[in-house]
């Protein structure tokens, strides 16, 4: 098992060297998006309003996550923040992969054939252990930005600063290999 400790700012440069089965720990900025955020991103793109989309969506790994947060005296505390089921984002992911400079998706459960094809020659799908929300929160240092709070806690877009975020298994690589035979 090959293990990589990668920086989110540099991951795009080495992403095509990663192979299905490799284990990755990420450090840097990731941006969350799940169903509602994906729908809004695609709507804005379709109506020619790309500038209204958080810039991190096109420059950071996208993390399929609807976190549990608590607002305290020290600001926003991440209580539990594991991945959500990625397959729900199948219809939206190819469009985002076309436009991003950081073709890395983090989630759980795998993604469909259309996403495997969109990742070819481009990027990877990383699987963080599903349900490990407390472990994930432990690896999130802080919430740097919050966008689209009107969507509610679970659906808003957050920029997390993470440290050694993993273990993330490369579930789908840029050569078309997938560890998922049932998705």
């Amino acid at each position: 098992m090959r293990v990589f400790h990668l920086n989110c700012e540099e991951v795009a440069e080495v992403v095509r060297e990663l192979e299905a089965g490799d284990v990755v720990y990420l450090t840097g900025k990731v941006v969350t998006a799940r169903d509602r955020a994906h729908m809004r991103i695609v709507e804005l793109l379709d109506s020619g309003r790309k500038s209204d989309i958080p810039e991190e969506v096109f420059s950071c790994p996208i993390y399929h996550c609807g976190p549990l947060l608590r607002r305290g005296k020290k600001g926003i505390e991440v209580v539990s923040a594991g991945p959500t089921t990625s397959a729900r984002m199948n219809p939206y992911a190819p469009k985002l992969l076309e436009l991003t400079s950081c073709p890395v998706i983090i989630g759980k459960g795998g993604m469909g054939e259309e996403v495997r094809r969109a990742l070819m020659g481009k990027g990877v799908y990383l699987a963080f252990p599903g349900g490990a929300g407390a472990l994930a929160a432990d690896r999130i240092e802080n919430v740097e930005k919050v966008y689209w709070e009107d969507l509610g806690m679970a659906e808003a877009v957050y920029v997390f600063r993470v440290r050694n975020f993993g273990p993330c298994v490369v579930g789908i690589d840029s050569k078309g290999n997938s560890l998922y035979s049932f998705s």
């Binding site: 209580v79 539990s80 252990p129 349900g131 929300g133 472990l135």
Partner: peptide
Amino acid sequence: SLLKNVEIAREKRVPMCQDT
């Protein structure tokens, strides 16, 4: 990782999964 997650959740008294 899952077993470690259970441990962290119990020690910190936080939900083991964000999907409560």
